[in-house]
Nucleic acid binder design. Structure first.
Lengths: 210, 210, 210, 210
DNA sequence: CATGAATGAGAATTCATTCAT
DNA sequence: AATGAATGAATTCTCATTCAT
């Protein structure tokens, strides 16, 4: 804690790491590159984070702390189920907008086995899924409990979908990732998750009637 | 040409590569490791695929050829929109079941910048999205064209969601990835994409009435 | 001068250094490790001893001051040759028992070339051998002077033999390094150096006669 | 095995390593330095020996194979006890003369704890001590078995004493390490171990009588 | 087709030391 | 007297690739 306050070095290190990891993947980035981007000496990475793996741990931990926070905050609001979901999605999109690199890294590296931090990831994920279940799925009494394990990851994938392939999509369409996009993204994903494609068709019909 | 005619060795190489890339990420795997797993000499990787990058290219290309095939096949069926989607999802899940490692690699490495193969990925993705648009979104005349660029990736993310985090989820729940799971997975994802969460609630109500 | 007046810290530093050097060798130990063991800040090593090399110098110097002392003390006793040797060996064993780490370091590092302290070692060793010659070999008028240079080191090696490989021997036999062992050790080494193996055989015969 | 035959590289590596380790200690030598001296690429050390530790293992193993051989050979000669010892000492001195660096490394690094190879050292030493006991101490029926553990190391220390401090002694006396020295060394050490210092005095008296 | 020795660049980490506080 | 951040060199080891056989 005191380390992060004295200088901005440790902050710059983690930001640089998130930036690079999110684009090249954890193994594709060298400590040297991170250090250069953060304008610090290579040794400082070990000094502050105990090595490259420590950096990823710090990033993943920070990500989960944010998501857990959101889950708790939404739960406290005691909104009706549909509003809860909308609120959660909206908050998540805001988070991704604010900390895009950090979130991407946490998600991209999730399915990848890194012996040194897998244990940490499992523990954080367990807790996170418990929190999210409590705050979101309460309102939807789904008969088959086996569907939970499918819907949970599907929900998160949906939320992240637009950002994960963002860099690639930039090269295909000329879409801009501005505030306007985020607003539209929020609404579209919410609608999709709540009512699926048929929701769009209906609303199309309604709009046509007008 | 002789090189592309896969002998047992070159097949083993690509399978080993897919297996390892899917678990450790492209940069996290060494050619030595792949060669060892494929029980061939290290030099053979360069010989057959022109280097490590060539392996990933081959994997990505193969993945897209499968998905393009599915898109074309479904288009030819000329099913109504909802059935088209269901069919597509079902075919995709079968593909993932059959070639899990290959599909995972293609998806995991998608957002990652690898100068040597980014161009290839962009080209393949462009063509793929065109095909998919033709075969699927025809039936859903969505008013706002800007939504396409959101719904497309969302659709694919949804389909892959259950498999991407499979290894991690294995460590959390005791879910088995058997044929039964795949069937349930197909139905749940189809339902979710077509009617969203409200679809589940409705069907719950209906079932309750009975 | 103030630096040489050992405070608690500087004493702990040198003890920690001796402990670690004796087990891992001079080059195998880092200043950080020493500082951690001594519970002081790393910079203090440079502050007190001018660097890592200074620590070894201090240890070696201290070792020779002890051995020189013993040589002088024994010389002053003016005992007959055999008694002189016994006394010297006994004193040396007591020294090793008291300052085991320090003595081990001095001996283990003796044959190792460390440019920074070789000169010091040579100077100290020269003086020490002169003193030992005076106090011990006086009584044994060995005809061939060339044997001195063989017997001298042999004598010291003999004295240290049991302690040098102590840690390894602990893992082989279940021998304890207690006071009893030291007493026996003293006697055995003295007997060996004075009368060799034949001394043991003779004493065996005598004991058998009884 | 085939590796050592194809090129002289692996031989040069181990010789260079022995040369440098014997002078600077295992931890005091870098792989770079060894590679430079052996005129090979740094990577070859890992390629042939699996790393720096593998080099030391190879050296220690080779040393023990030589000493075990000597012990067995002397045992087969079935000489009387004193002759056995003389023969063993003589053979050992020849070994040291031939493979001075290798022997020094094995002995210097013996008391040093290197987690990676301590287990190997213990195993080799156990076997070696068993062999030496069988071939040498048979003739000397020493009453107290506790003396064995003192005499064994003392014996070896004695044999090595002249070579361990060789480099340092060169700087003090002007002694040459030629064949003549080795012959004299053999005789002196044998005499010392068999009859101790009193042997010299006696022989002095006898020689004086003449 | 296949081998394995060889290369040189680059990986992460640890080193002893210094300096401002 | 003591701290701890910072440095730059040096550490060992692994990387993908090539080449002669």
């Amino acid at each position: 804690m005191s380390k992060t306050l004295k200088t901005g070095s440790s902050k710059r290190i983690i930001n640089s790491a998130a930036y690079l990891f999110s684009r090249k993947g954890y193994s594709g980035v060298g400590v040297r590159e991170i250090a250069a981007k953060a304008r610090i000496n290579i040794s400082m990475v070990s000094y502050y984070y105990g090595g490259k793996a420590g950096l990823l741990k710090a990033i993943v931990t920070e990500y989960f702390s944010y998501v857990d926070d959101i889950a708790l905050r939404v739960a406290e609001m005691k909104l009706p189920p549909r509003e809860s979901l909308k609120e959660f999605i909206c908050e998540m999109v805001n988070l991704i907008k604010d900390k895009e690199d950090l979130c991407k890294v946490a998600i991209i590296e999730m399915p990848i086995e890194l012996p040194e931090i897998t244990a940490v990831k499992v523990e954080l994920l367990k807790n996170n899924m418990r929190l999210m279940s409590q705050s979101l799925s309460a309102g939807f009494n789904i008969n088959d409990p086996k569907k939970h394990i499918i819907i949970g990851p599907a929900f998160l994938s949906l939320i992240f979908s637009g950002f994960m392939f963002g860099n690639l999509i930039k090269k295909i369409s000329k879409d801009k990732r501005d505030d306007d996009f985020c607003k539209r993204y929020c609404e579209t994903i919410s609608a999709l998750f709540l009512d699926g494609m048929s929701g769009f068709v209906k609303s199309n019909k309604k709009e046509k009637k007008k």
